[in-house]
């Protein structure tokens, strides 16, 4: 089933030049989608469109086959409940003056989801391997990796169908990065991920399908295995060639 789709979408800020042009893509339930692009590729704008934070200049963004409509409160509430996000910077993405409990509970409260909030927060903390007493503490008491876990707990607390992850491990150390990737992998069994990153290796680790963005256009999309085995577009080939590798074992 198609969760989110962009069809014929173009976008420009004000009267500026096109940031995105003729974008067609679909996020299918159960199949993680990776969006790879470098600075200036338009991936941040695409993220905002997918999250309903910006409106397309032309074309349509649809959720479960229906067009996103900011005026339709009930529909938007369902959309917000189903589509959550995790961001790059674990420092800027948590309110420093809120306790972890309130941070994680925010979607439940704002979306007026009728559930036992305390139990849901506790379960979310368990899902991201944080101790239950973390709920009483403030973000500054945690390291970068732990903060990213808190942000993931907030994203999953309302049991969404889709999580959009924007460069979620770029700010983390290698060993922490690996643990967060393992966590996202285990969560993939319950929900679908859209992984936005400049790092094609990260996307390849997590996603079955891949979209390569260059200067606001999709230059290549398809199954990750196929693209890695036979990259059709020169830009994709350049990305793969530029990614530094470990030396052969001696």
């Amino acid at each position: 089933m198609t969760l989110l789709a962009l069809s014929g979408v173009s976008f420009s800020y004000g009267r500026g030049s096109r940031v995105l042009q003729d974008i067609d893509l679909a996020v299918e339930a159960g199949s993680n989608l990776g969006i790879v692009g470098e600075s200036g590729s338009g991936k941040t704008t695409m993220l905002k469109l997918l999250l309903g934070l910006e409106r397309a200049s032309s074309g349509a963004v649809s959720f479960r086959g229906e067009r996103l409509d900011a005026a339709n409160r009930g529909f938007m509430r369902g959309f917000r409940r189903s589509v959550q996000a995790v961001f790059q910077d674990p420092y800027s993405s948590l309110d420093p003056r809120q306790r972890v409990f309130d941070i994680i509970a925010e979607p439940l409260r704002s979306l007026k989801i009728e559930t036992d909030i305390a139990a849901a927060v506790e379960q979310a903390l368990r899902d991201v391997d944080l101790p239950a007493d973390a709920a009483r503490r403030y973000p500054h008491e945690f390291s970068g990796g732990q903060r990213q876990r808190i942000a993931i707990a907030r994203a999953i607390v309302a049991n969404p169908d889709l999580i959009i992850a924007d460069e979620v491990v770029s700010a983390l150390d290698l060993t922490t990065r690996t643990r967060i990737i393992d966590l996202l992998r285990s969560l993939s069994a319950r929900m679908t991920f859209v992984v936005v990153s400049h790092d094609i290796a990260l996307v390849a680790l997590l996603c079955e399908r891949l979209v390569v963005l260059e200067k606001g256009r999709i230059v290549e999309q398809g199954a990750t295995r196929d693209i890695l085995a036979r990259p059709a577009h020169p830009y994709t080939r350049q990305l793969l060639a530029s990614t530094p590798r470990m030396p052969e074992r001696v």
């Binding site: 934070l53 917000r80 996000a85 961001f87 948590l94 309110d95 941070i103 979306l111």
Partner: peptide, 17 residues
């Protein structure tokens, strides 16, 4: 301009909240 505001919007929190 902080990410936690974007996160709040995505969590369905309206402007007064």
């Amino acid at each position: 301009s902080m990410d936690y505001i974007t996160a709040a919007r995505i969590s369905g929190t309206a402007s007064p909240g």
